[in-house]
């Protein structure tokens, strides 16, 4: 299996987890979306040399993962798959910023290493929060929440249709790719000419499919407006969930908790 097939398989896994039924799953999608956004803004609003104050924020993903039954292994694998860009850019920091800012015992530490550590933590926090959002809410729920919070209908419908046909078209792409690699012996990616032909074929199939879907829609009375039923409602528990986390994020953002705990032990 190619990397991409693994990738797609894992969307399926996330989807299955999203169909679970725990306290976190039952929350209104809006409360989870807002909490996630607050969390991310809180994390990235720290200065670039901040490391220790980021740590309390790990409470959110850890508790959410534990409460929703999201396997830690899956989160870890996903983090590794998407790591490259952020880490590639971040790893240059230690080379560019060599000014010594502090020391751990006898070992001097440069600003670059501190900011790199900070980037790694930010990365782990923001990525796992996004994955947990979709893993406990599902794309349908996220779309519903976004639409309630002002996302245009056309765009929400676009998202749902995209997601629905992702698997169908990805499957066609994978099959085509397999057929090509079965007949090429170099194992290299195709050059632009062949690539364009493959893309063109895929596109024509996609267009034909879109026409058939439109036919199916109009057979059932589609007139351009998408009507759907609201899946969930806002309860007291949603307000409580949002308030508790917002309060925690605010405290963790304003007070360096590890620093305080540490200073109680180290004089």
């Amino acid at each position: 299996m190619s990397n991409l097939e693994v990738h797609f398989h894992e969307i399926g896994v996330l989807d299955r987890i999203a169909a679970g039924d725990t306290f976190v799953h039952r929350l209104d999608p809006r409360s989870k979306l807002l909490a996630t956004l607050l969390f991310i803004v809180g994390v990235v609003s720290f200065g670039k040399y901040e490391v220790s104050a980021l740590l309390p924020f790990f409470l959110y993903p850890v508790v959410m993962a534990a409460a929703s039954g999201m396997p830690a292994g899956l989160l870890g694998r996903k983090l590794l798959i998407v790591a490259p860009f952020a880490l590639l850019v971040g790893i240059l920091n230690p080379f560019l910023d060599r000014e010594i800012l502090t020391a751990i015992g006898p070992v001097p530490v440069s600003g670059g290493w501190i900011s790199f550590t900070s980037i790694v933590f930010r990365f782990m926090l923001t990525v796992s929060a996004a994955l947990l959002l979709v893993g406990t809410t599902g794309i349908h729920g996220v779309c519903f929440a976004c639409e309630k919070l002002g996302m245009p209908r056309v765009f929400a419908v676009q998202l749902l249709l995209l997601y629905r046909y992702l698997f169908v078209l990805a499957d066609e792409g994978i099959r085509m790719f397999r057929a090509r690699s079965a007949r090429s012996f170099s194992g290299r990616a195709p050059g632009p000419g062949l690539y364009a032909q493959m893309i063109g074929t895929l596109l024509l199939r996609a267009i034909a499919r879109a026409q058939r879907i439109y036919l199916a829609m109009s057979c059932r009375g589609f007139d351009g407006a998408f009507r759907s039923r609201t899946p969930v409602g806002w309860h007291v528990r949603d307000t409580a969930f949002l308030l508790v986390w917002a309060a925690f994020f605010t405290v963790a953002r304003c007070v360096n908790i590890p620093e305080i705990i540490g200073s109680m032990f180290v004089q």
Partner: peptide, 22 residues
């Protein structure tokens, strides 16, 4: 009729990005 077309085209871009070129 462009509503399903847009959705499927988005999915197409996704699928197309799975194939790399040199």
């Amino acid at each position: 009729s462009h509503i399903p077309l847009m959705g499927v085209m988005g999915a197409f871009i996704f699928a197309a990005q799975m194939i790399n070129f040199t």
